[in-house]
Every structure is written in structure tokens, then in C-alpha cells.
């Protein structure tokens, strides 16, 4: 049971993030929602590669014993880097939107025409 807690946390994080994106009207909160989803997915990747009592696979000459598999960690690292870029891009766009509208509330911005 205890081993499943990370997976439950993953599902929880993704649902929290999605509901933030769907129900929050503040643009910053929408971005926070996206980063929460991102953390959920990253946590999932890390959990997949986790092995109890293993060492990190960063040795030139291995000391022996159980090693964690490096691939999921590499994936997570890539995903985090991409996430940073995306978040930065989104925040910079929000700055421009705020400058123009003077608000972050989507309801006050008015949607695009039909």
C-alpha cells in the first residue's frame, strides 16, 4: 500500500492542476495549475525509476550494489528543462497581457471574437 502513495499523489496533483486550469479565472493561477500538472507527471517519472536503497548511477567505476535506472531520471530532467522554458514563455506573455488590460482576470479581458 505504502508503495502506491506516490501514484496516488500523481493522480491527485494532475487533477488539482487540471481543475485549477479549468476553474480559475486568474491567468497566473492557470499557469500555476499547469506547473502542478507538470510536477505530477515528473513525480510519476521519478517514481517509476525509483528503487529502494539504490545508488545514483553517476559513477565512473561502479561501487557495486543496486543502481537506479538512469533513463527515467534523464527523462525527468529533460521534462523539467522544457517546463521551465514553457513557464517562462507563458509568464512573459501574461506580463504583456497585464500591461494592456491592467488585470489578470480572464472575465474582464473579453474573449476573442467568434
Amino acid at each position: 500500500m505504502i508503495a502506491n502513495i506516490p501514484y496516488l499523489a500523481v493522480v491527485g496533483l494532475i487533477i488539482i492542476g487540471l481543475s485549477a486550469v479549468i476553474f480559475k479565472k486568474n491567468l497566473i493561477k492557470i499557469i500555476i495549475g499547469i506547473t502542478i500538472i507538470q510536477s505530477g507527471v515528473n513525480l510519476f517519472l521519478i517514481t517509476l525509476g525509483y528503487r529502494e536503497g539504490s545508488t545514483a548511477p553517476i559513477w565512473t567505476s561502479s561501487p557495486g550494489g543496486v543502481m537506479a535506472f538512469p533513463v527515467p531520471q534523464a527523462l525527468t530532467l529533460t521534462s523539467i528543462v522544457i517546463g521551465v522554458a514553457v513557464t517562462a514563455l507563458m509568464l512573459s506573455l501574461v506580463i504583456h497581457l497585464y500591461r494592456h488590460h491592467g488585470t489578470l482576470d480572464v472575465r474582464k479581458m473579453g474573449g476573442d471574437d467568434q
Binding site: 487540471l18 471574437d113 467568434q114
Partner: peptide, 17 residues
Amino acid sequence: LKKMHTGNVSDYVLWFV
């Protein structure tokens, strides 16, 4: 259809779900 196209990104994600 016009009512469906709100132009709000939250709704876009809702449709995805």
C-alpha cells in the same frame, strides 16, 4: 455553435477533458 466558442482557454481545456 457561437455559444460554444467562448474564447476562454479554460473552456478549451474543459473540452479536452
